[in-house]
């Protein structure tokens, strides 16, 4: 099914330029957040604090972009009074920006855990699952941003549906960490840090899913935030 979004240009070239600028800024913000997650998870898995420091530094520019994009949204609402797909674009961008900023915060948390754990030789029972979860949420984020750029409902729905795939790994990893705490009670402090990092990754998956939901709103005007899986599948079949 083809989307009915119009790719014709606005009569106002200036309005076109404003919308292009805000979309570009959003994708730039998305790129920074992806980079931040990669650095933070690498730092944790390699027990190396250097990429973690870099990840925390990126958070500042992400925060700055959040404020700038929100200002652009407010300016366009005030000056252009957008309607239909333009209105949905501005609303979606404002929400996606919030999700991206929160993903940035979660990635910073992971980075801080990495810095704390770098000098410590604590047991890492969950490395494999951790890596799988990290790869999965990073892929979810990349695909949701890609779906946003292409306004692809199909890809967005797949991202939302794939959020459930993390659950198994997440619960298994949590169980393994609990067992490790019982086996190494002297390492509870460090194992708890791994619990927090794992939780942050899981939250990143939720935010990536939320971005994908906004893509469907943008492209079709349908709010799928509380839809069940069957409703989601119907959208793409």
């Amino acid at each position: 099914m083809s989307e009915k979004l119009s790719y014709k240009q606005h009569i106002s070239a200036q309005f076109n330029a404003e919308l292009d600028a805000i979309k570009n800024d959003l994708l730039e913000m998305g790129g920074k957040v992806e980079n931040q997650i990669e650095l933070a998870t690498e730092a944790l898995l390699q027990t190396d604090s250097e990429p973690a420091e870099a990840a925390i530094l990126i958070d500042r520019s992400i925060n700055r972009l959040e404020v700038e994009i929100d200002e652009q949204c407010a300016r366009i609402l005030a000056r252009r009074q957008p309607a239909a797909s333009d209105l949905r674009l501005i609303i979606a961008i404002a929400k996606v920006t919030t999700d991206l900023e929160r993903i940035g915060d979660e990635a910073s948390k992971v980075a801080r855990v990495a810095i704390k754990l770098a000098p410590v030789q604590s047991p890492q029972p969950t490395e494999l699952r951790f890596r799988r979860i990290a790869n999965h949420v990073n892929r979810m984020l990349r695909q949701s941003l890609d779906a946003f750029a292409r306004q692809s409902v199909e890809q967005a729905v797949k991202v939302v549906l794939s959020d459930a795939d993390i659950d198994d790994d997440y619960h298994s990893a949590m169980t393994e960490l609990q067992q490790a705490m019982r086996t190494h009670p002297d390492h509870i402090e460090y194992l708890m840090e791994q619990v927090w990092a794992l939780r942050s990754l899981e939250r990143i998956g939720d935010h990536a899913s939320s971005i994908a939901e906004q893509v469907v709103y943008l492209a079709r005007g349908v709010d799928i935030r509380h839809a069940d899986n069957e409703g989601l599948r119907n959208l793409i079949n």
Binding site: K4, L5, S6, K8, Q9, H10, I11, S12, F15, P82, A83, A84, S85, D86, L87, R88, R220, G221
Partner: peptide, 19 residues
């Protein structure tokens, strides 16, 4: 509905100010 998610492409183009 017309101003948030019209059904027809022509409506969309008109109310968003496209050619």
């Amino acid at each position: 509905r017309i101003f948030t998610n019209p059904v027809e492409r022509a409506t969309e183009d008109y109310i968003t100010g496209r050619y």
